[in-house]
Write a protein that binds this DNA or RNA. Structure first.
Length: 272
DNA sequence: CCAGCAGCCTGAAAGC
DNA sequence: TGCTTTCAGGCTGCTG
């Protein structure tokens, strides 16, 4: 489940391998989730950015164009040496791009929760979550005040607001549970004081920074574009630890389902 | 506009 | 052992 730290880890690895490459050929799975990949044939990759969990490749394709990739749950991007014999019939291969130097850029996605879009640069209207995406977690616009305003304007669970990508970009289930545990806030709260909002902004940044520092969290499927697992799963305080003792107070961590998301929390440190 | 939720997907793990 | 069921979950799009 690539979230911001996993996507950023991949972006950093890909950047120096794809920038400057010209796309000579491409292919894609028939689904319209992936088929737009072929529209960038003839383009040159100018840069590789990230917004939230989206990878954004700027292309010169006559007009400024963006190739947008969301990894979903199990998406993997990799660049293969020209000598590699990459199997273009692999059952999980959803899209591929052949560079004019012979290298192959591939997108594998077992569960097909990923998505590929090609748009005129900056035209995100057909991608609702990206269109409405909130600030990056380290953006000056992401403040306790701004987060508190989002919570006040909504009647949803606090955790659901964090996952919705509007108040802040890039948080998924793992880092939401981690940040809420670190802040000592119950995920099912529907209100947030100014003081707690400031604290939650800090812990969101801390949880994501830990993920970045450890190359991402690998629970099932995540590997970076070199096929390496992350190490942040060894640093988790809360996510996936239901039934185990809280690292702060030794109370048994509990899990419940909030809006169809498994949520782990400490019933004592994160009392409502 | 909002909240809530089904549906998309597959393989691993658990249950029988 | 082998078959069936459950689970994981980000995002989209539908419903009320």
């Amino acid at each position: 489940m690539p979230e911001l730290p996993e996507v950023e880890t991949i972006r950093r690895q890909l950047e120096h391998r794809v920038v400057g490459a010209s796309i000579a050929d491409a292919g894609a799975h028939w689904s319209d989730k992936f088929s737009p990949a072929v529209e960038v044939v003839g383009g040159e990759i100018m840069s590789a950015h990230r917004r939230g969990k989206y990878l954004l490749f700027d292309l010169d394709h006559g007009v400024p164009t963006e190739l947008i990739v969301h990894l979903g749950m199990t998406g993997r991007l990799a660049v293969h040496d020209a000598r590699d014999e990459t199997d273009l019939t692999h059952p999980h291969l959803r899209a591929w791009w052949r560079f004019d130097d012979g290298r192959l850029f591939t997108f594998h996605d077992i569960r097909r929760f990923g998505r590929i879009h090609v748009v005129d640069a900056g035209r995100y209207g057909e991608i609702p979550t990206l269109y409405h995406l909130g600030p990056e977690p380290w953006d000056a616009a992401f403040t306790g005040r701004a987060l508190a305003a989002f919570v006040k304007g909504s009647n949803r669970y606090l955790k659901t607001i964090l996952l919705a990508q509007r108040a802040v970009a890039g948080i998924g289930n793992i880092y939401a549970d981690e940040a809420l545990w670190m802040a000592g806030i119950n995920p099912a709260n529907r209100r947030l004081s100014a003081q707690r909002a400031d604290r939650l902004v800090e812990t969101i940044r801390a949880a994501l920074q830990s993920g970045l520092d450890h190359g991402g969290t690998t629970l099932r499927d995540y590997v970076d574009s070199d096929g390496e697992t992350g190490a942040n799963q060894h640093e988790l305080f809360c996510y996936g630890r239901a039934g185990s003792p809280c690292h702060r107070c030794a109370t048994e961590l509990r899990s419940r389902v909030l809006d169809a998301r498994t949520t782990t929390y400490c019933p004592r440190c994160q009392a409502r």
